[in-house]
Design a protein around this nucleic acid. Structure first.
Lengths: 336, 336
DNA sequence: ATGAAAGCGCTAACAT
DNA sequence: ATGTTAGCGCTTTCAT
C-alpha cells in the first residue's frame, strides 16, 4: 500500500498473469480457466484491489450514472419519486445525481454539466412543463418526463392519471349527494392541474351538473392559496357543499378557512384532496384524499429510462399511474 | 458531427495548435496568448466541444462528486438537509449522489461502490449512529457526520444543538408556569434523543423541578408513537399539564390522543415539538415548536467536507446549529 | 485460454 | 507561450 492505489497491473503481476486476464476476471468473462480465475481472485483479495469507476467510464464510455432534475428535493411528492427512482436505479447498477433546480437558469446549467460533459447517461425530469425547461433538454440524451402529459415532443413519460384522479374525486363527492362542488386547482400552466380539472368537468358532465366557473379558482399548491381561495368563496351566496382541492396542502388551507368561518368540516363542507401526504390522517379532520402511488411512478420512470439507455428502444411510452381513494373524515354524505 | 464526439485533438487540429494548448484554454491557464486563446475558443464554439468529465476524472484523479448517505430521502428533515447540501456542493463545482440506505447492508454496499471504486471524493452521512453503519465508513475518505454528537471517532460533524433545543423547549414550558412536564423522546440509541433529553433534565434541574421517569417515554419519531405514549400517560393520576415532544410528528400524535380524551390543547395541555415541519401551522391547534435551521446544517456540512477534501485540513470540527422557538397555539400559560 | 498492443480523452511534466 | 511525450487505469481489438 505504499503508492497511491493498487491497480489492475499490480494484481496481474502478483498473480503472474497479464493485466488483461485480470480485466477478464473482474468483468466475469467466460474465457478464463478456473485455475487462473482462482489465482487472480486471490491476488485481488490480498491486494485489496477495487477497480476504478473513472477508468472504467473512460474506457467504456459509460458512467452508470443517471441524473434526476427536480424543482426541489423537499416536497413530499418529489422526494418520494426521487427516492423510488434512486432505489430502482441502484437495483440496475446505476447511481443517481439528484439536483434541485427551482429556476430555469439552474436547470440549464445542470443540463450543460450533466449532459454536456457526459456525466450522466440519461435524465429523469420532474415537472418539465413547470416553465420553459423542457426546451432545454437535448433530444439526443435518453430522458423520461415525470408528471407531464405527453405533448408534441417525443419523450417517454410517466405521470399520475390526473384526469382519472379529478374524475374519481369529483364522482365520489357527487355520490355523497353533493351538487355544488367547488375546485381549487394548481397552477394552470402545469399539465396535471389542467388534467385534474378536466376530470372534474367530466364527472360533473356525466352527472348532468353544470360547470360553474365561479366555484373554481387557481392556487399554487400551497395551503395558503387554499385558504385564500375559500375565504373569498365563502362570501358568495351560492356557496358549495364540497370542495375538490387538487392537492392536500390546499385542502388543508380550505379546511382552515372553513373553520375560521365556523363552517364545520365535513358536516357543512366536505373537502377532498390529492396526494395522501404524510400525517394526512392527523389533520383535523383527517383528510379524505386521492392517494398517489409515488413509488410506482419513480420506479417505472427509471425502468423506462434504463431500457431506453440499454435497449436502444425506439421512443415513446407514456405511462399513467392510477390513484386510489382514501376515505377519512373530511367528507361525508350531504345532509338535509 | 459524424464520429462519436469531438475531442480536444479535433479542436486542436481545427485551431492549428497542439491539444495541450486547448487543454490550457479550457482550464483557464494563464500561459496562453490572447490571440491563441481566441482562436481556440472559436474552434471550441464551432465544433461544439465540451470536455468529458470522465476523461478529466481519469487524468486528474478527481471526480468532483460527493456522496450523501441518508436513511431515506423523504423525511422532511433529511430532504431539507440534502437539498441544502446539494445546492452548496454545486456552488463549489461538485455534484452529489444522494442515496437512501434504510438498512445497514445497503449502507455497506453503497460505501463499497462509492468509496471503493472512487466514485466520490467525500461523504456526508446523515444519522451515522442510527445503527452500526458508522463502523463501515472508511477513515481514509473525507467525511462529515450530520445529526450526531462527536464520539470517539475523529470525524467532522454538524448537528442541531440538541441539548440547547431540549433545554429551551422545556424552559419555555416552565416559564409558562408548567411544573408537571412530560416528554416523549426519539429512539434512545440516537444521539439527538439523548441530548434533547439531557436538555430537558437541565431545564428541570435549574428550575428546581424533580425529574420524573414516569412522565417520560420513548417513541420512534412517528405520530403514532406520540399518540400511544399519551394514551397511556393519560390514565396516570399525576398527569402532566405540558408535553415536550422531541419532534413535531410525535407532538401531533400527542395532541390527537389528548383530543380523543377531551383534553383541550392548549387549555388543558400544552404541547411543544421540534422541527417546524411543513404545515406545522395548519394543524389544530397550530404547533408551537423549536425550529431547526436545516439549510444551515446542510450548507455547513458540505463546507466542512469540501474544505477537508481541498485543504487537507486536519480533522475535526464539530458544529452545533441552534434552534429557534416558534410560538403558535399549542402552548399557553398554565391556568388556575 | 491467454497475452500484446492500442487507445479511451484528458492532464501533467518536461521540453523549447 | 507553445509543443512533445507520457501517462491516468481500464477495456477492446487482434494475435497466438
Amino acid at each position: 500500500m505504499s503508492r497511491s492505489r493498487v491497480n489492475i497491473r499490480d494484481v496481474a503481476a502478483h498473480a503472474g498473469v497479464s493485466h488483461q486476464t485480470v480485466s477478464r476476471v473482474i468483468n466475469e468473462s467466460e474465457r478464463v480457466s478456473p485455475e487462473t480465475r482462482r489465482k487472480v481472485q486471490a491476488a485481488i483479495q490480498e491486494l485489496g484491489f477495487v477497480p476504478s469507476a473513472a477508468a472504467r467510464s473512460m474506457a467504456r464510455g459509460r458512467t452508470l450514472i443517471i441524473g434526476c432534475l427536480s424543482p426541489n428535493l423537499t416536497d413530499y411528492t418529489f422526494a418520494s419519486i426521487i427516492q423510488a427512482s434512486e432505489h430502482q436505479a441502484r437495483l440496475h447498477g446505476y447511481f443517481m445525481v439528484s439536483s434541485s433546480s427551482p429556476e430555469v437558469e439552474t436547470f440549464s446549467s445542470l443540463i450543460n454539466e450533466l449532459v454536456g460533459k457526459r456525466r450522466v447517461e440519461g435524465l429523469v425530469v420532474l415537472n418539465p412543463y413547470e416553465d420553459e425547461r423542457h426546451n432545454l433538454v437535448p433530444d439526443q440524451v435518453p430522458t423520461v418526463y415525470v408528471g407531464s402529459r405527453p405533448r408534441q415532443e417525443e419523450v417517454d413519460s410517466v405521470a399520475l392519471d390526473d384526469v382519472g384522479t379529478g374524475r374519481d374525486a369529483t364522482r365520489y363527492l357527487i355520490e355523497l349527494g353533493h351538487r355544488n362542488i367547488a375546485m381549487i386547482t394548481g397552477p394552470m400552466n402545469e399539465d396535471c392541474s389542467q388534467d385534474r380539472s378536466n376530470g372534474y368537468k367530466e364527472a360533473l358532465a356525466e352527472a348532468g351538473l353544470q360547470y360553474n366557473p365561479k366555484l373554481v379558482g387557481e392556487g399554487d399548491w400551497s395551503a395558503t392559496s387554499g385558504h385564500e381561495f375559500f375565504k373569498e368563496l365563502i362570501d358568495d351566496a351560492n356557496y358549495p357543499s364540497a370542495v375538490f382541492a387538487q392537492n392536500d396542502r390546499m385542502a388543508v388551507g380550505v379546511i382552515r378557512a372553513a373553520r375560521e368561518n365556523n363552517w364545520k368540516v365535513p358536516d357543512k363542507l366536505s373537502v377532498i384532496g390529492v396526494d395522501d401526504m404524510p400525517l394526512a390522517s392527523y389533520f383535523h379532520p383527517p383528510l379524505t384524499t386521492m392517494q398517489q402511488d409515488l413509488d410506482a411512478i419513480g420506479r417505472k420512470a427509471v425502468n423506462l429510462l434504463i431500457s431506453s439507455i440499454e435497449d436502444e428502444r425506439s421512443c415513446c411510452e407514456h405511462l399513467l399511474i392510477p390513484s386510489k381513494l382514501v376515505v377519512r373524515k373530511s367528507t361525508c354524505r350531504i345532509t338535509g
